[in-house]
């Protein structure tokens, strides 16, 4: 499903070039649960951003199914993300002015889905993550775990085939972490490919494939 070939990413800053990724190649099959772990600054988030088409590699190619991501324009990438990729972030990144329901509806809105259908699907997803009683709550009225559940529901709204999670449990306690991981596993078992970045190696047992990164390389 995903093929990364010889991906490198360098950042230029004041005449100094910093390599975040060095010649990374990775293959992820449909329905896999992949965990990428490593220390801070090892390049795992950069890799996730490239996988999510939020960043472009300096070198190498990225194929998603039959699509060469490098050939897509900015506007095409937006559409591609909307159709194929869901994001979960460590800081949840919910929109504070919106209710949980409105946050989940957002990707559907950008996909051009009508209000009624949007509402129905968002409600279903919030029920799935166990927040049927807090649909009208705003992020500030939810706990960290609940916010992450909303973020997960939002990432699944457009029924993506790939779910990218960047340290989704980084801000959560142990019990909530287990709940969120169980939820992600369930989503994965229902057919969604999950790629998760973490520095917590204890979560590796949830994965079908574990990728260890250090100094911008897969080791």
């Amino acid at each position: 499903m995903i093929t990364l070939s010889n991906i490198s990413k360098k950042y230029q800053g004041r005449g100094v070039s910093t390599a975040a990724l060095n010649d990374v190649s990775l293959r992820v099959d449909q329905g896999e649960f992949v965990i990428i772990y490593g220390k801070s600054g090892c390049g795992k988030s950069t890799l996730l951003n490239i996988l999510g088409t939020m960043d472009k590699p300096t070198d190498g190619t990225y194929h998603f199914k039959d699509t060469d991501i490098g050939s897509l324009k900015f506007s095409e990438l937006s559409q591609f993300r909307n159709r194929h990729i869901g994001f979960i972030f460590q800081s949840f990144y919910l929109i504070n002015e919106f209710t949980a329901l409105a946050n989940v509806e957002m990707p559907l809105g950008y996909a051009g889905i009508g209000k009624g259908e949007r509402r129905r699907r968002a409600e279903e997803l919030l029920k799935m993550v166990g927040l049927e009683n807090k649909m009208k709550n705003k992020p500030s009225q939810l706990s960290g775990g609940e916010q992450q559940r909303v973020a997960i529901a939002r990432s699944l709204a457009a029924a993506p085939s790939l779910l990218l999670a960047d340290e989704p449990t980084g801000n959560l306690d142990e019990k909530t972490t287990d709940d969120i991981m169980a939820l992600l596993k369930r989503i994965n078992q229902e057919g969604t490919t999950v790629i998760m970045v973490t520095h917590n190696v204890d979560l590796a047992h949830y994965a079908d494939k574990v990728v260890h990164m250090a100094d911008g390389r897969i080791v």
């Binding site: 999510g52 939020m54 900015f74 506007s75 937006s78 559409q79 993300r81 909307n82 159709r83 994001f87 990144y93 929109i95 957002m106 990707p107 950008y110 996909a111 939002r154 457009a158």
Partner: peptide, 16 residues
């Protein structure tokens, strides 16, 4: 800016 970044991640175009 954060909200706009999230919107982009969720598939929003700049014109959105």
């Amino acid at each position: 800016r954060k909200e706009y970044a999230i919107s982009y991640a969720m598939g929003a175009h700049k014109w959105n």
